[in-house]
Amino acid sequence: MTGYLYKEFKLNIRLVLLFLLTYIFFSVVPIFTVYDSKDDDTIGQTLTMILGAFCVFVFITAGCIQSGVFSGDDRKKWAYFVTSTPSGIKGYIGAKYLFTMLFAMFVVTLETLKLALAEQILGQSSGLSVLIAAMFYVQLFMRAVEYPLIVRFGTKTGGMVKITAVCVIILAVIIYALFGDTSAFASMDTFWERMFAFVGDPDKLKKLLLWVGVCTLAVLPLYYLSYRISVKLYLKGAENYAK
């Protein structure tokens, strides 16, 4: 298992370093963007919005790296070799899942440090730690859905299945935007007003936090289930891999 983990680390180190370089850029830029308007009265909201947007962007970028952990491994020869090793399929797939989780945790650590740096420079907290934790679980959820598809159908077909699923969701959103009730988004000013009013209402916030807690924790068993499914599907998927 440690060997497989080492392999993942070795294969992805360049991508991780590249990610780190872009990360430094994307963590410094928003802080100093906000720093320019430090004396503005609405600094708290500006800080939350800009840092929040960059935080989401960072998690999307990290997600791209995670999605690529299986690429290059979908070869029949490699799959049968993996099966014959002492760690076996469980160790091989487990290392992928563990690497993904550790990388996501690494991103959380980076984001935590970035928020601390922002707090230090700007003199006030952005209150985004819950968003970071939520993004971590969203990321795990996405991988939990994506990995079994990749294992079963290979990187290419699995990727296409994923893109198709995303397109279906986008199409559903577009159809809803065209024909559904969109009064909540009629005016962005009132939308944000209502949004901040919602966050300001203690009762609603409590219930929201409780649901955030329940939903985020539900992702962990799902991630484990996804690992078990991937282990089960691996040899079936290997039949479709190139030689």
Partner: peptide, 20 residues
């Protein structure tokens, strides 16, 4: 409600910040 919300959020953020 708030007590359990704090507990669950603490649990969730503890796992997310496992790197620390």
């Amino acid at each position: 409600v708030m007590g359990f919300a704090s507990l669950l959020i603490g649990l969730a953020s503890g796992i997310a910040t496992l790197f620390h």
